[in-house]
Simulated scan of single mutants.
Amino acid sequence: MTAEVFEHPALASAASQLSALRAAAGRLGVADPVAALRHLDCAPASIRTSASAIDTGALGVTSAQAEFRAGVEHAENGGSTETFGAWADTVDGQYAAAARAAASTAALGVRIADRLDELAVAASAEVCALASAAADSVSAVLDGDRSAEVVSEVGATCTAVIRAVQEKIAALTALAAELEPLTAPAVELS
């Protein structure tokens, strides 16, 4: 069996540590515990990099807003019309809203990356402990033992691994709710 590639290092390590359990599960025709880990695989470092880029973009928008505001104040003091001032205030508000939205998105990206990382690390530790506890039964199955006791323990361990992963996935629901505001434009341009 070839090793599967995972983005998250803790999940890659867990997959490696579950290889014997996976082999035993395959011989017994029960659910693949390593395949369950795939549902939690993530790349928090990439998400953090994207969040940092968004944050840098927010700083650029804030800087552009400051330059715009300085130009507006100069134009208003030079005798420009009231219409220009109202338009400039609207554009200035849009700059501010865009900068706030970008900064908020960046902060959310960091929170999401941190939470995904926590869940992947916690799941990895939990499933490795489960596999370790069943190591004797796994070895027995791999050596050809099909007694009810060892078969039951291997099957129960695979089920427990899947359940542990499902619980971590369920914890992502709150993160999904935080993403909802990002589905609408942050700023409506006029």
Rank of each mutant, 00 (worst) to 15 (best):
G60D: 10
G60T: 07
G60E: 09
V61N: 01
T62Q: 12
T62P: 00
T62V: 02
T62K: 08
S63A: 14
S63K: 10
S63R: 09
A64H: 02
Q65K: 12
Q65V: 05
A66R: 08
E67L: 13
E67S: 13
E67Y: 11
E67H: 12
F68P: 00
F68E: 01
R69S: 12
R69E: 09
R69A: 13
R69M: 06
A70T: 09
A70P: 03
A70D: 15
G71N: 15
G71P: 01
G71I: 02
V72L: 07
E73P: 02
E73W: 07
E73G: 09
E73M: 14
E73A: 15
H74K: 15
A75V: 14
A75C: 09
A75K: 12
E76L: 15
E76T: 12
E76M: 12
E76V: 14
N77D: 14
N77P: 00
G78N: 14
G78T: 11
G78I: 03
G78P: 10
G79N: 05
G79W: 07
G79A: 04
G79Y: 08
G79E: 05
S80L: 08
S80Y: 12
S80Q: 06
T81I: 05
T81E: 06
T83V: 10
T83S: 09
T83C: 02
F84Q: 00
F84G: 05
F84M: 05
G85C: 06
G85M: 05
G85P: 04
G85Y: 06
A86D: 11
W87A: 13
W87R: 11
W87E: 14
W87D: 11
W87F: 13
A88C: 03
D89A: 14
D89F: 01
D89I: 00
T90K: 14
T90F: 07
T90E: 13
V91E: 07
V91D: 04
V91G: 03
D92V: 00
D92N: 15
D92K: 07
D92W: 05
G93A: 07
G93T: 02
G93D: 07
Q94W: 05
Q94V: 01
Q94G: 03
Q94N: 10
Y95T: 00
Y95Q: 01
A96Y: 06
A96M: 07
A96G: 08
A96Q: 14
A97Q: 11
A97V: 01
A97F: 03
A97M: 05
A98N: 00
A98V: 00
R100E: 14
R100N: 11
R100G: 03
R100L: 11
A101R: 13
A101M: 08
A101I: 02
A103S: 15
A103N: 13
A103H: 13
A106P: 00
A106Q: 00
A106E: 00
A107P: 01
A107H: 06
G109R: 02
V110E: 05
V110Q: 06
V110P: 00
V110R: 11
V110H: 08
R111S: 12
R111W: 02
R111M: 05
R111E: 12
I112T: 10
I112A: 11
I112C: 06
I112S: 06
A113L: 04
D114Y: 04
D114C: 04
R115N: 10
L116K: 07
L116C: 07
L116Q: 11
D117S: 07
E118T: 13
E118H: 11
E118N: 08
L119R: 11
